[in-house]
């Protein structure tokens, strides 16, 4: 078992479940319904996201293409966030989920620093309806829904059935068949995190680090203004 985890990775272990997601990028139309479903499911505040869809344009007119890339926590089998958490607030579930204990989190943001997928965020304090704030939050693969035999909210709402969720240890599940039949890609496999979100046909602009910088200065300026406005109050003083 990788050091610092609370449960053995269950991938390929008979009799155990290993929940995973396959994202078929041939089917993603960039409607952002998954992002909205996630916001609705968890009352995710403005400025932070549990899942996002990154968009990049390539080429120049008339030869152009818009690429979409849904991103979320990869629920790694060797999660660096779990290993680095000083209070074991984030932990590995025996069925593969990487989850967060809000009551134990001190919001030191080490897990954010450790995550190579930029999948974690700080929940602002003083929220209106949900009282959980000032701690770290992330995608949970909708653990509460999966426990009730439902699929995650983003999967449920996906218009093009681009997001597919299931038990990778079950050879008859759709995710197991897709992973077996397609040349799937995981993000940053060289980091040794063993991510469990598999992509079918991603584009280089979304998977390679050197191509990953935002080109759109308008989007970046918006984000900078947002964080500058909130700096020192809700989002601490992190750098952009």
């Amino acid at each position: 078992m990788p050091v610092g985890l609370q449960a053995q990775p269950s991938l390929g272990v008979p009799g155990k479940k290993r929940w995973a997601m396959v994202i078929d990028l041939r089917r993603c139309i960039g409607c952002m319904a998954c992002v909205c479903a996630d916001k609705a499911e968890y009352d995710v505040p403005l400025g932070v996201w549990r899942t996002i869809v990154k968009v990049k344009d390539t080429g120049s007119y008339p030869n152009t293409k818009r690429h979409f890339m849904p991103r979320l926590c990869n629920h790694c089998d060797n999660p660096p966030c779990v290993r680095n958490c000083p209070t074991e607030a984030t932990y590995k579930h025996e069925e593969g989920f990487v989850l967060q204990r809000y009551e134990r989190c001190i919001s030191c943001r080490t897990c954010i620093a450790a995550c190579p997928y930029n999948a974690r965020h700080v929940l602002p304090k003083n929220r209106d309806r949900v009282k959980i704030g000032g701690v770290i939050d992330k995608c949970t693969f909708c653990h509460h829904r999966v426990a009730a035999d439902l699929v995650p909210a983003c999967v449920q709402t996906c218009l093009g059935r681009s997001r597919i969720f299931g038990d990778l240890n079950d050879p008859n599940s759709e995710v197991a068949r897709l992973v077996a039949r397609h040349s799937v890609v995981t993000l940053k496999p060289e980091k040794g995190t063993a991510p469990q979100v598999y992509y079918i046909k991603p584009d280089r602009v979304h998977t390679e680090q050197v191509l990953s910088r935002p080109v759109s200065h308008a989007a970046r300026a918006d984000a900078e203004a947002f964080y500058r406005h909130n700096r020192g109050t809700q989002f601490f003083s992190g750098v952009l």
Binding site: I52, D57, I112, A113, N118, F235, G238, L240
Partner: peptide
Amino acid sequence: FEYSEFNIAP
């Protein structure tokens, strides 16, 4: 439209 998200460095 390129970036719908820009998480803050911690």
